[in-house]
Lab assay of single mutants.
Amino acid sequence: TETYKYDDKREAEKAAEEFRRRGITVTVEERNGTWVLESK
């Protein structure tokens, strides 16, 4: 599991889209005002 942090929800979702395009499952969730993207 890799974790990436973003200040902006849009950025996180854009990154998530890129991962999914490569066939990687990711989750995006907000933690304490930071958007956390996790690849499984």
Rank of each mutant, 00 (worst) to 15 (best):
K40D: 10
Y4P: 05
V28K: 01
T1N: 11
G33E: 03
I24C: 13
E18K: 06
E13H: 07
N32R: 03
E11I: 07
A15Q: 07
N32I: 02
N32G: 08
R31F: 09
K14V: 09
E2W: 15
E11L: 10
A16L: 05
D7E: 12
F19H: 04
Y6D: 00
N32F: 05
E2H: 15
V28R: 00
I24N: 06
G33L: 02
T3I: 14
E38L: 15
A16T: 02
T34S: 12
V36R: 03
D7W: 12
S39Q: 13
A16H: 02
E18G: 07
F19A: 04
R10P: 04
E2M: 14
T27V: 12
T1R: 09
T3A: 09
R21P: 00
Y4L: 11
I24Q: 09
Y4D: 04
R31H: 10
G33D: 03
R10Q: 13
T27F: 10
R10L: 12
E2P: 11
R20Q: 07
L37I: 13
D8Y: 05
D8W: 03
I24S: 04
E17K: 06
E17R: 06
K9T: 02
A16Q: 06
T27G: 03
V36Y: 14
E17W: 05
D7Q: 13
R22G: 06
A15V: 08
F19Y: 08
T27Y: 10
Y6I: 02
Y4R: 09
A16K: 04
E38A: 11
T27N: 08
W35S: 01
T3H: 09
R31K: 10
T1S: 12
E18Y: 09
A15K: 09
R22D: 05
N32W: 05
A15E: 03
F19V: 03
N32D: 13
K14R: 11
E17N: 06
E38T: 15
T3P: 08
D7K: 14
E13K: 04
V26Y: 07
G23T: 00
V36P: 00
V26S: 02
R31L: 09
R22N: 09
E11Q: 10
E18H: 07
E11V: 06
L37N: 01
V28Q: 02
L37G: 00
I24Y: 15
T25E: 14
I24H: 10
G23W: 02
R22I: 08
K14D: 08
R21I: 09
E18A: 09
A15P: 00
D7L: 14
N32S: 06
W35G: 00
T27C: 04
V26K: 02
E17S: 05
T34R: 11
S39Y: 15
E17G: 04
V26L: 04
T1A: 11
I24D: 05
S39P: 13
T3S: 11
E2N: 13
T25N: 13
K40H: 14
E29K: 10
E30W: 15
I24K: 07
E18M: 08
S39A: 15
A16G: 03
W35F: 07
A12S: 02
G33A: 03
E11M: 09
F19Q: 04
G33K: 03
R20S: 07
R31D: 07
E2I: 15
A12R: 00
E18D: 09
V26M: 09
K9G: 04
F19G: 01
